[in-house]
Amino acid sequence: MKINVEVDCTPEEARRFMGLPDFTPVHEKYVSNILESMDKGVSPEMMETLMRSWMPMGEASMNIWRKMFDQVGGGSSSS
């Protein structure tokens, strides 16, 4: 037997229904830090170093994200 259920709700309503935490303040702080760094004229290399320090698991986390974007974009990972 196959049953399909369609739920029409906003992402916020789904998050609350599933009991997931609200990371909006963390996201806003993260974005504001990136924008502030860009306004100060940070080089791409410095931005990468900064993002590595903010990312949990450091290099491993960056590699996971890079591979995910490569797969979605249809590209191949160079590492």
Rank of each mutant, 00 (worst) to 15 (best):
residue 1 M to S: 13
residue 2 K to V: 15
residue 3 I to R: 09
residue 4 N to P: 02
residue 5 V to W: 00
residue 6 E to Q: 10
residue 6 E to G: 06
residue 8 D to M: 11
residue 10 T to H: 06
residue 11 P to L: 01
residue 11 P to G: 03
residue 13 E to M: 12
residue 14 A to V: 12
residue 16 R to S: 05
residue 18 M to D: 05
residue 20 L to F: 15
residue 21 P to R: 06
residue 22 D to A: 11
residue 24 T to A: 08
residue 26 V to T: 09
residue 27 H to W: 15
residue 27 H to N: 11
residue 28 E to C: 02
residue 29 K to T: 13
residue 30 Y to D: 04
residue 30 Y to M: 08
residue 32 S to R: 14
residue 33 N to G: 02
residue 35 L to F: 15
residue 35 L to V: 08
residue 37 S to H: 13
residue 37 S to E: 10
residue 38 M to W: 07
residue 38 M to Y: 06
residue 39 D to C: 07
residue 40 K to Y: 09
residue 41 G to S: 04
residue 42 V to W: 04
residue 44 P to S: 04
residue 44 P to Q: 02
residue 45 E to Y: 01
residue 47 M to C: 04
residue 49 T to I: 11
residue 51 M to D: 01
residue 52 R to E: 08
residue 54 W to S: 04
residue 54 W to K: 10
residue 55 M to Q: 05
residue 56 P to N: 02
residue 56 P to H: 01
residue 57 M to K: 14
residue 60 A to F: 05
residue 60 A to I: 12
residue 60 A to H: 07
residue 64 I to E: 04
residue 64 I to G: 00
residue 65 W to G: 01
residue 65 W to D: 04
residue 67 K to Q: 13
residue 67 K to R: 15
residue 68 M to E: 12
residue 68 M to T: 10
residue 69 F to K: 15
residue 69 F to G: 03
residue 70 D to T: 11
residue 71 Q to T: 01
residue 73 G to H: 02
residue 74 G to S: 00
residue 74 G to I: 03
residue 77 S to D: 12
residue 78 S to T: 08
residue 78 S to M: 08
residue 78 S to V: 05
residue 79 S to M: 03
residue 79 S to N: 06
